[in-house]
C-alpha cells in the first residue's frame, strides 16, 4: 500500500476522532440541538471502507454517521453548520446530525431509522446496475439493523439480482441499553446470519484499518465487475453511550477501559506506522494539531453562520 494512502487513512481517523471529541464537548455544554451519536472507537471501520470507494459511489449511513461522512469526503464546515441547524449546513439546517447528506459525494444520508438504509443502498445499486455507470453502493449499518426485516429482505434481493452493493455491518456489540448477544441476537456474529444468502461474506477486525480496507477493496472490485454483493462484518466497539446523554451502566467499566486502552484503532495504527517508519512522532503530532485546528475553524464557521430564514421552512417539500 502506498505510504500516502496510509497517511490519508490515519489522518481521516484522527479527523473523525477530533470531530467527535468536539461534538461531545459541545453537547455536554448544551450547545448542540437534538440527538448526537458518537463514532468514537469505530473510526477504522468507516475509513477502511471509504478508502476503497470513488467519490461518486453511493453510501448510506446510520444515526452514528459523522465518521462515515468524513471518511467519504465531506467538508467539516458544512457538517458543523448542519449540526447547529444553520443555513450553510449540508441540509440547510433541516436534517441535523442524524440525517446529514451530501449528494456531491454519493452520500444518501445518515438515517434515524435503524435498518432503513439496507433497501436504500440496494436501490442505489439497482440504479447503478441498470444505468451501467460503474458505481457501487455501500450500506453501513449496525448489529441492531441486522435484526430488522430489511436486513433479510434486502440481502435476498441483492443476491437474486446480483446487485453491486456491499453490506457493511459494524458490529459494535451493543444495542441502546443491552448487549446484543445473547440477549437480542441468536448469533454472536452477524456473519452467521448473512452466509445463507450465498454471496461472499467476510469478517474483519474493525480496529484494523488496513484489514478493513483489504476486505472493502475485494468487495468493491467484485461489485464493479458484475460479481454481485458482499457482506462485511467489522468487529467494533462503541466507546460512547448509544446517544450522548444516555445512561451507560449496562456494561462493565473495565470492558470500556480495556477497549480504549488496547483496541483503540488510532493508537494501534499509530504504533504500526511508527514502527514501519511511515510517520515519526513529529508527523503524528502535526496531524493531530491540524485536525484539531480544522475542527475549531469549522465550529467557528458554524457558530458565525446565520440560521435559515423562516421562509425556508416551507421550501423543499416537493421538487
Amino acid at each position: 500500500m502506498e505510504k500516502s494512502l496510509k497517511i490519508k487513512m490515519f489522518t481521516d481517523m484522527v479527523r473523525i476522532r477530533c470531530f467527535e471529541d468536539k461534538v461531545n464537548e459541545l453537547d455536554r455544554r448544551g450547545e448542540l440541538p437534538g440527538f448526537v451519536h458518537l463514532y468514537w472507537g469505530e473510526e477504522a471501520s468507516g475509513v477502511g471502507i471509504c478508502s476503497a470507494l470513488n467519490t461518486d459511489d453511493y453510501i448510506t449511513s446510520t444515526h452514528r454517521g459523522h465518521g462515515h461522512m468524513i471518511a467519504k469526503g465531506a467538508v467539516m464546515t458544512k457538517m458543523w453548520a448542519e449540526l447547529f441547524g444553520k443555513e450553510a449546513g449540508y441540509n440547510k439546517g433541516k436534517g441535523g446530525s442524524m440525517h446529514i447528506a451530501d449528494s456531491e459525494i454519493g452520500f444518501l444520508g445518515a438515517n434515524g431509522i435503524v435498518g432503513a438504509g439496507l433497501p436504500l443502498a440496494t436501490g442505489a445499486a439497482l440504479s447503478a446496475q441498470y444505468l451501467d455507470n460503474g458505481k457501487v453502493s455501500v450500506c453501513m449499518f449496525g448489529d441492531g439493523a441486522s435484526l430488522e426485516a430489511t436486513f433479510y429482505e434486502s440481502m435476498n434481493i441483492a443476491a437474486v439480482f446480483n446487485l453491486p452493493v456491499i453490506f457493511v455491518c459494524e458490529n459494535n456489540k451493543y444495542a441502546e441499553y443491552s448487549r446484543t448477544f445473547p440477549k437480542l441476537s441468536s448469533t454472536e456474529h452477524v456473519i452467521d446470519r448473512a452466509r445463507p444468502f450465498g454471496f461472499p461474506c467476510v469478517q474483519v477486525d474493525g480496529t484494523d484499518v488496513e484489514a478493513v480496507r483489504a476486505a472493502a477493496l475485494e468487495a468493491v472490485e467484485r461489485a464493479r465487475t458484475g460479481g454481485g454483493p458482499t457482506f462485511i462484518e467489522t468487529l467494533c466497539y462503541r466507546w460512547a453511550p448509544h446517544c450522548q446523554g444516555n445512561r451507560d451502566d449496562y456494561r462493565p467499566e473495565e470492558e470500556k477501559a480495556y477497549e480504549r486502552e488496547h483496541r483503540d484503532p488510532i493508537k494501534l495504527y499509530t504504533a504500526k506506522l511508527l514502527e514501519a517508519g511511515v510517520l515519526n512522532q513529529e508527523d503524528i503530532d502535526r496531524i493531530w494539531a491540524a485536525a484539531i485546528q480544522e475542527v475549531e475553524e469549522a465550529v467557528q464557521f458554524a457558530y458565525d453562520a446565520p440560521y435559515p430564514p423562516l421562509s425556508s421552512a416551507l421550501e423543499d417539500v416537493f421538487a
Binding site: P119, G123, A124
Partner: peptide, 13 residues
C-alpha cells in the same frame, strides 16, 4: 418494505 425503499433510492439515483 425493501422493494419500496429500493424504488425510492433508485429514484434518487
Amino acid at each position: 418494505t425493501s422493494y419500496t425503499g429500493i424504488g425510492i433510492a433508485a429514484a434518487a439515483a
